[in-house]
Structures are given as structure tokens and as C-alpha cells.
Design a protein around this nucleic acid. Structure first.
Lengths: 457, 457, 457
DNA sequence: GAACCGGTTCGAACCGGTTC
DNA sequence: GAACCGGTTCGAACCGGTTC
């Protein structure tokens, strides 16, 4: 239901807001407030349980803490963070320092009615969101004029765009509130940073992409190729940050549930996103305590325009104790390797589930359903007539789909399974057809009947 | 079904995209994401990704080891990693250095509007992709004029082309990702590097080639002659790298299963591909830990246009613990012997199985099936007519087969399931047929009816 | 499907084996091998067995590790075993010793063609199964005459019996195999130990009891009152042990999933069963590493016949990482406080779920469905006739359910599915009926036909 | 409490090595 | 080379926690 609602909203957007490219921000902003179904309680409990476990038996102390919220965990993560910070990649350090400096000048940041103290905003902030925030939304004179950087740098996107809408400063419906939450809005930036899902995937049961929703559906542990495009292949790295779409979950870290996380190695046990073909030790890190995957930007191989990135999820979106049915997106952030500053961002909606094609179809249908009646040819029109005038054949989406009666709720009410001896099937089918036709004639052109109707047949 | 679908799509490609030779990339790109049939569990267990991530080359000791994540494993793998890193294969080192040198001369590489800095391009690249990139696509003035190199250098291919399609930058459905995964897209390069399978093979039970699918079927341990063509026979060598086609297996190394590998000598025990007539000790190596066959490029004997290469596989595509039913291709890469840089690439799809002709037939059929209409009898033909002329009943093949709604998308709209006693099936079908016919007449030649329609039939 | 099948089996038992009270063992023995619906993979991965087997306390690194059988694992398990044996709970120790002594007199126990050496039987046995085994099934002359203890000591049970069937030595369908698995068969014992669920519960949405299945359905964290009855209130204590019903899960410990367990206190974090009104520190223990709830036997208050026990579950039967949809029972064992020996046992089937009434309804229905032939109206009766006299329609329940071919093996050969608009269903049914009737007449009373038959209809 | 959602189950079809 | 057979895949149905 939540998803339906969300999709409906999206659909409405599509209808009421014709897609604007360039300098307006109509990307997935509507998606920012869709979620209805999360269990905050359980999230909180995740930490408690850890305490409990750590106190109890042996294995408890070795659990890879999926839970961020108790004191010990926070401490240990702090330690880990510090360890990381002691030998940080240069750019991280740079960003962190920079932002801290920025913040030192802005003790209080007002964003969307949220008052953030500097402590909230910037301490240990390695996200660079603030810098980005400033770039996008502020008029901080210390920065270069940022709007010039990204606004009209729009290039045609031949492939399915994963999130290719630009960001504007004019409208901030649900802006990333504070330093601990990364932005989830697309911002191609100066180099037109783009992430896209390749078309033509054959195995729709493993993963599929909905162009309608611009959303990727994938099975757990299945590697997805993502194309990274850039106007210029500079020295940079990409960070991948999963972020809940609903604003009330935004501050929570997207992490695998306990069961799923234990399949990971120690280094990546908090990371719901994993990449392949990378040096593991430098890949799974934390940014502001939030698990983040970082990987260097590779230029594409000879003759290819896009660099491919092999990515997989290790926990279901529905997993209790993990995302817990709360939709989340992946934020791909491009960072300049020299300065560490953020120079591009793309957001990819996704859902990690067991039946990607089924779920995509369902959600696509939910999105489209309210929109239009899709009847296109005579038969459909006939059915439409019948449907409107009374009972008849059910609708009807044009697209191929798994036959799910649930999708057409009237269906199972309007049809019944009748065991028919095989040899009678044709007659029965014919009978049915004739009944339909008769019904139609009866309603619209009853005069065509030779004999008066009687129902006793 | 999965294969069917894959093949269907391929078929569609053949139909809707007339084969373009030369500088467009319509080769096996559709096949890049075909795999549907492997077992995720086994995939998880397979050492490949683990090996890749962790860096072990001791595949035998890790593959299929289902409990990879305890501390001991981690430790030993780390150790192995270090060992490997301390003693890299010589040639890898050479290539890597070489490419880095190349790159050091090209600070910025422009590829399809993409600018690459040297730092991004070459560091730790042992695949040679970057060198190739620079050579082929860059417009950097420091380089030789590269666009001339690859654009229209297309030669007619008299034989069955194993993978003779050039690469374009315009459309990349599933490009090879990063340094640890080789590209699997054709790129003839400056010298129009071509690999082809000779026609006219008599013993189709040993090996055969499907022109439809551009795929080689061969029995294990049977040597296949492959023709290598080149515009100019320079001082070069060829590497043969087996790569899984599905992106989710891409990083895994294609290696023979344990049973099959033990039949090889020590040097080649990780190599599923073997060549004949070569000095063994220099042939079976590793590139970025991936088993690779390398062999010098021999000019053809006097009077012949192609140099022949004798190749065989030592493990079945279906072999458990090896490819495990996951389709893979062979990537033939041409390297300049002086610099080691990649100057051409061809990809050959194949399947190593026990019954090549049977399997080719089946898969060819599956590819073509969706193309042709399968109507064989009157009723089906009638339905075809009706379907074409408007709305009606869809076909109903008698033979038991998986009910693939995808192939008949309208089906789910107009029908419901009614069990019919077997003995009555013919009559029911006849009835349906007559009704369909009536419907048809009713629409197109209603005057033929003797009486107006009534429902009392 | 699995449940249906299970229930079918159960139902068949009810029909073919009239309930025998007293000295025959027809209790829930049929349930001993019922489970079909769990995920073996996940079960294998579950930490329970792994922890037990491997003995590591690094839960995170070991859980879900799918390969338990290498030498190291075996070694570490031995180690854990030894560690645990060094500090066993007192009462367990007592029982264990006692039984070991018993065993020392019986070097070989023959049970159902299975020969157990004493080493297999009794080592580390803290369950007392062997003693019970011997008591129940053996005819060893060294023991007290056991058959007298339990055979005809049956008391009327006014309330819903939770599991009041006695145990006999005549038939052992799936006896508890070894020392680490407790018995899950009822054995009232000398004092006629009985556990029952009170009748007349008002809030069926919190918990309810199916008399048909003798199974308790309850919501998580909802306390259930259970009545304990005894012929004589001696000095004893009760242990409550959850045990999976399916034999293949029998050795696994029933424990709450990670999320649910963290809601418990430290002492009870491994216990899926909790009791109220008890001293916590003495309640949650381990027997042979299996989490067990122990509580003293309180005589009922003056004027009451039964002592009440307040019990709740803290994790759902469906919880992933916990029971994971694997049905389990609670084994209530009565122990003599002075000797610690087991003197009675009752088994309570249950399911902890979110919608107890719904699930009970569904499962009750599934149990009852296959029993009665559901033909109620003329058409069904006609079909019955035809089925017996030759080929015709099989029965056809109106309610939507999975089409179980196994129940009606001919079905799939003799029927076909025909989509029928709902509003025409009655007519189609009538049509089919008439066809069937005609067939019947044609066979049995052709003279009734007015016209000669022709097949062209 | 009914409907929904999504992980799981189940049996038919498929695939491909093996046998006849 | 046709048939067999057994592991795998696939889609519909199911189940049960969650939402409305």
C-alpha cells in the first residue's frame, strides 16, 4: 500500500508536472516522503539487543554490530572511525576539515525549519553534505558561484537514466536536513556524472529496471552492472551510500539485518551494498558513522563510453532488523580525489527482493493503473464498453506480466474455476464467447436477436 | 525458459536490427546479461568472488568451501593475498608498468567526450584496457591519430565470424566494469583483428558452430581450429581469457572443476582453455590472478590468409564446481609485443558440452521459435487470423509446455481457468472454434449468416 | 501445501485409527515427521547447529557459514563440548550421572532395529531420554517394571487436553534419537502429569486453542495460562523445552531470532519461552546446551484442582533467524526434585503468530478438508457417479485453493483450464453438467434420447 | 478484520550428461 | 541418436506479518 501510494504520487507527478530538465528540481523529490511502514522501534531495539548479547554468552561479544544506537556501539564505532581517520584518504580529511571550518562560521544552520547546532551539523562530518548544501542552497560568498557549475550542463542520455534530473536551488521540498544525512537529490555536476542501468537484461528474474519508476529491482546477492558516465574521466572516487527514502528514516543508517550481515566479512558486515572487483580493504568504510562503500573511478575500457560498476545488495529491503520494508535509495557521490570535494551525485532507487519481476510489475501497475485506461484496439474497446455497461471481461494491461489475480481485484470475483471435461472445453469456450457476445448484443442491439431472450437456457 | 527468452531477444535483435558490420556494436552485447540458470547458493559458495575480493589464487582450496567466513579462512586468505602480491607474475608486472608508461605520456584521454586523466587510467591496470583505450579512442593530439585507426576499417568476413563486430561508443548495454574484469566487447582495432571458426566441419558431434547465435559448441578435450586474421602481421601475442557472460558472474574466474582440472598438468591446472602446439611453460599464466592463455601471434603460412590456432576446453560448461552451467565466452586479446598494449579484441561465445549438435539445435530452435507463428492446424490458423484482424482467442497449443504468458501478452486479459474434463476437450475446442469463426464472420462477413445470432445455440 | 499434506495425514489418522486412550501411543506421534515447509538451506545456515557444532563464540563470523564439515570445525566442536562439560548445571549433572549409571548396566540398547552402544547412548546425556527410552521401550529386567507405571493410569480430562495421550511400547514411529534430543512424546507417568489449555478464552485474537489439532495458537508476548494437573503434588519441578517437530530439525535448538531475543534480558536471551511469576535467575537455564525453562511445581491453591502456569513466547514461529517457520512443540517435563529423575512428560503443539484465530481457522480447515467428500449438490453427485462409472469430472471445491494434483491424480490429464467470465460461470457449469449428463445417459440409458446421437455437434 | 505484500513453496518444464 | 533421469528453474499459489 505504501508503495502504491508512493507510485501514485509519482504518477501524479508525471502527469501534472511535465518533466523538466535543466535547472529545476523535480527529480525524485516526490519520493522523499513516501514511507509509511517502518518500525522505528525495532531499529532502536537493534542496539539494545547487542548490549544484551554482549553481556551474555560468548558469541554475543563477537557479533558484528548491526546496531548503531547503544552507547557501546557508538563508542566502538567512534573508535573505528577514529582509526579510520588516523589514516584517512587524503580527500576525506580535506573534506572533513573544510566542512568543519565552514561550520565554525555557522554555528546554527537553519534548514527547512530544522535548527541544527553546529555540533549536530558538522562534528566529524565527513560527508561533505554541508559543503554541498552550501553549494546548492546557500549563497555563501566564500564559495564559487555554484549554480553556474551544474545548472544547465545537461547532456542527452541515451540509456535509461538512473536519475538524471538536475538540481535547482529554487525548490527544496525535503532537503537533506543535517550533516549526518546525505543529500538524495540528483546533481550531475560539472562533469555530468551519470549512473545508469544497462538495458537488455535477459534475466528479469534476477534483476530488472523499471523505466516508469526509474527503480531497480534486484535479488539479494546478485551482481548488477551499473554504467558510470562522465564528461571527463578525472581523478576521482565514488561513494555509494544507502539512504532511506522516507524523511523520518533518513537519519537511520541502512544496514543489513543481523542474519544477512553475518554472511559478510568483518570489514563489510555493516554494509548492505557490496561491490565486486575492488580491493576489499579500501572499499567498506564509514562516513560520519554511516556505512559507505568507496571505490575509485575507473575510466572505461578502450572503445567503451561508460565505466561499469558491479554492485550487489546483501540484505532484502523487507528484511526485519534491516531495512525492514523501508524503501531506500543508493546515493552515488563523485568526489574529486585531490580535494575530496563532492562534484556530482546521482540517486538510484531500488528494491532488493526475492521476485524482482513480480514486484516491479505490481508496482508499475500500481503506478500506471490510476492514470489511463490502456485499451487500444477493438477488442479492448469492446471490453471497455462491456465493462462500463456492466459485467464482462476484466481489464487488461497491455504489457506482459505474471498472471496475478491480485492485481485485478475484480478478477477473482468475476471468474471462477469450473472443472470442465477436456472434450467439452471448446464447446464451453464457445459457449462463453457466445454468452459474452449475446450479452453485448442484448444490451446494445437487442433487436438483432431472432427470438426473444429467455434465461432458462 | 530463460534461455528461450534470451534467445528470443537475440532473435529480435536479428530481426529488428539488421546486422551492422564495422563500427557499430551490435555483436554479442545482448548476451551480456543472459544468465538465468545458475544457483545462487552455489554462486555464493564459489570461490570466485571471494577470491577476487580477497585476492587468493588458490582456487582449489577455496572453491566450494562453503564456510568461508571464519577467522581462520580470513587469515589464510590474507596470507595468500600477500604472497600473491609479493610475487606477481612477471608479465603482468611488465604490462602494468608499460601501460603506466604509456599513460604517463597521455595526461588526458578523450573518449567519446570523456576525458581521462592518466592517473585514473592506468594505475594498477593489468588488463591493458587503458593502453588500448588511448590508442583507439582518444583524440588527444599527443597520440597518433586514433580515430582513423578503428572507425571504418572493416574488412569483409568470408567465414563465419566468431565475433567480428566492431565496437561503437554509442550504445553500451553491459560494459565490462573495472580493472579486475576484462572487457567482453569486440574491438577489431587498428589491424582489424578477427577470430573465426572454419566452416564445413564434418563431425558435428564433436563441435559445431551456430551462425544464428554466433556460438561455438564443442565437446570437452576436442581441439578446434580457429582462424586468426589481421591486416598486418606484426610482432604481437594473443591472450585468451574465459569470462562469464552474466554480469553477476563476471568477476568470477572461469576455471575447470576439480575433476577436470586434475587431468591437466600442474602449470595449466587452473586453465579451462588449452592450446596445442605451444610451449607450455609460457602459455598458461595469470592476469590479475585470472587464468589466461597466452600465445605468440604466428603469421600464416605462405599462401594462406589466416593463421590457425588450435584450442580445446578441458571442462564442461555444465560442470559443477567449475563453470556450473554458467555461460562464458572467450576473450581473444591482441597485444603489441613491444609495448604489451592491447590493440585488438574479439569475443567468442561457446558452450562445452557432451552433445554439441543437440544442444545447438535446441538453442537455435529456442532462439527462432518465437519468431515464427506456430500455428499448425486449422483452429490455430483461425486464431492467428482473428488475432491479426482484431481481438479474439489466443492460440492454445496442445503440447504440454510451460505456460509462458510473456509470449502471449494478451492472454491474461480475457481468460480464466476452467478445468475441463479431458474427454470433452475436443468438443469444447470445436465449440470455441466455431464461435471464433462466428465472431470472425460476424465482423467481416456477417451477411454469410443464415440467421441472426442468438444465444440459444 | 506442506501443511495441508501434514494435516491430511493427521486427518487420515483420525479416520483410519480411532482415537485410543490409555495404553496405546497414538498421541502426536504422527506429527513427528510432518514438516515439509522449511528451508533446509536456511536451517543449515542457522547459527544453532553451527554454534553447537563449531563451538566458536564468534557468532558473526560463523553464522550462516554453510560448510560445517571440515576437520577444523569438528575439532572446535569437540573443544566446546569439553568446555561445557566442565561446568554443567547441577540438576543436569545429576540426571546425566544417573542415566549414565543406568547405561553402564546396559551396554547395548536395541530400539527399533537401531543398535546403540553405550557410548552413543549416554555420553553427555543430560536429557534423560535414555532412561525414558529404557523405561518406555526396553524390557530390560534390571529396571523397575515400567509398563505398569503408565499403562492404564488415565484420568478423565474435563478441559481441553493439551496432550493427554499415553505412551505405549508397542510402536515407535519416530522415537527421539539420541541424547541431545528430548523426547516429544506424551508420558503422563506415575502421577498422571497433565498440561492443558483452559477453555473459554474470550480474546481469540490473542490466543486460541484448536481441539482438532490439539494445538495452541498465540501472539508473541501474550501470556497464556496453562493448567498443570497431577494425581499427587509431590516435590518436583517442571522444565519446558521447545523442540522442533520435524525430525530433521530435532537436534536444532529452538531459540528466538536475533531481533526478538534482544528484547529479553540477558539471562533469557536464548529462550523463546518465558514464564511469569518466577524468580528469573533460576528459571532460564540450559540443558545439554539447549535453552530450557525450569520452574518449581506449585500445588494448586486451596480448592482448585490445577496449578496454573503463566507462559509466553517471545519470538514468532515464522521468524527468520529463529524458528524460521519450523513448527515446534513445548515439552513439559516433570522432574522429581530429590533425584532429578524424569517422572512425567507432556507435549504441547503450538504456533506463535500474529493472527492466531486466522491461522487456526486456516489450518483447521486444511485438516478437515480432505476428510469429507465435499460434494453437496446435484452436479457434484453426478460427477461422483460418472467418476465411478468411468471417466468424468472429479470433484471441485468452490473455494480457491492450490490445485493439488496428488489428491486426484487423474485430474491433470482429464481436465483443462478455460478462462470464463465470472458472470457466465453458472451457465458454463450448467453446460458442462448437461454434457456430463448426456454422456451418462448415452452410456447407461441411450434409449432416453429423442434423436440418434451424432458427434458433429 | 479484510486486503495487501512479499518471502516461500511446489510441481511442471527444462536442461544436459548418461544410458540404451 | 533417442530416451532417460535427475538437478535446476520458473511461475502460480500460499502463508503470514503488516497495513488500512
Amino acid at each position: 500500500m505504501a508503495d502504491v501510494q508512493r507510485l501514485l504520487n509519482q504518477e501524479n507527478r508525471v502527469i501534472t508536472e511535465p518533466r523538466q530538465k535543466g535547472n529545476t528540481m523535480n527529480g525524485n523529490q516526490q519520493d522523499l516522503e513516501p514511507m509509511l511502514d517502518d518500525v522505528d522501534y525495532q531499529q532502536l531495539l537493534r542496539g539494545d539487543s547487542l548490549l544484551t548479547r554482549i553481556g551474555s554468552s560468548n558469541f554475543a561479544s563477537l557479533i558484528e554490530a548491526p546496531a548503531p544506537f547503544n552507547a557501546e556501539n557508538r563508542e566502538s564505532r567512534h573508535q573505528e572511525l577514529h582509526q579510520l581517520e588516523q589514516q584517512p584518504p587524503q580527500e576525506q580529511q580535506a573534506v572533513s576539515n573544510m566542512q568543519f571550518n565552514d561550520l565554525s562560521m555557522n554555528n546554527v544552520c537553519m534548514v527547512n525549519n530544522d535548527v541544527l547546532t553546529s555540533a549536530d551539523c558538522g562534528l566529524n562530518d565527513s560527508w561533505g553534505n554541508l559543503g554541498q548544501l552550501v553549494e546548492n542552497y546557500s549563497t555563501d560568498p566564500l564559495l564559487l558561484n555554484p549554480t553556474q557549475e551544474y545548472s544547465p550542463v545537461v547532456v542527452p542520455q541515451p540509456q535509461v537514466p538512473a536519475g538524471s534530473r538536475d538540481v535547482s536551488t529554487s525548490f527544496i521540498p525535503d532537503s537533506p536536513p543535517n550533516s549526518q544525512v546525505p543529500s538524495i537529490q540528483n546533481w550531475p555536476g560539472q562533469y555530468d556524472f551519470q549512473i545508469s542501468v544497462p538495458v537488455g537484461n535477459k534475466d528479469q528474474n534476477k534483476w530488472c529496471y523499471s523505466a516508469i519508476q526509474e527503480k531497480l529491482y534486484l535479488i539479494k546477492h546478485v551482481t548488477i552492472p551499473l554504467d558510470v558516465k562522465l564528461l571527463q574521466w578525472l581523478d576521482a572516487y565514488i561513494t555509494i551510500t544507502p539512504v532511506f527514502k522516507a524523511s523520518r528514516n533518513r537519519v537511520h543508517h541502512v544496514m543489513p539485518c543481523f542474519n544477512c550481515s553475518t554472511k559478510n566479512s568483518v570489514a563489510s558486515s555493516d554494509h548492505i551494498v557490496m561491490v565486486e572487483g575492488q580491493d576489499c580493504e579500501y572499499t567498506y568504510k564509514y562516513a560520519d558513522k554511516r556505512p559507505v562503500v568507496t571505490l575509485p573511478l575507473h575510466p572505461p575500457p578502450p572503445g567503451e563510453a561508460a565505466s561499469t560498476l558491479l554492485l550487489k545488495l546483501v540484505c532484502l529491503t523487507s528484511c526485519n532488523g534491516g531495512p525492514n520494508r523501508r524503501p531506500f535509495s543508493l546515493v552515488f557521490t563523485l568526489h574529486n580525489n585531490s580535494s575530496g570535494s563532492e562534484i556530482g551525485r546521482q540517486v538510484l532507487d531500488l528494491k532488493c527482493c526475492q521476485c524482482p519481476s513480480r514486484d516491479m510489475l505490481n508496482e508499475d501497475k500500481a503506478v500506471q493503473k490510476p492514470t489511463q485506461s490502456t485499451s487500444t484496439d477493438i477488442s479492448n474497446r469492446l471490453m471497455e464498453v462491456l465493462k462500463r455497461s456492466g459485467p464482462a471481461v476484466t481489464s487488461t494491461s497491455e504489457k506482459k506480466k505474471r498472471f496475478t489475480i491480485k492485481l485485478e481485484p475484480e478478477t477473482d470475483r468475476r471468474y471462477q474455476n469450473v472443472p470442465v471435461p477436456v472434450e467439452y472445453v471448446p464447446k464451453v469456450k464457445g459457449h462463453v464467447n457466445s454468452l459474452i457476445a449475446a450479452e453485448y448484443i442484448r444490451r446494445n442491439q437487442p433487436c438483432l436477436f431472432l427470438f426473444p431472450e429467455d434465461e432458462s437456457q
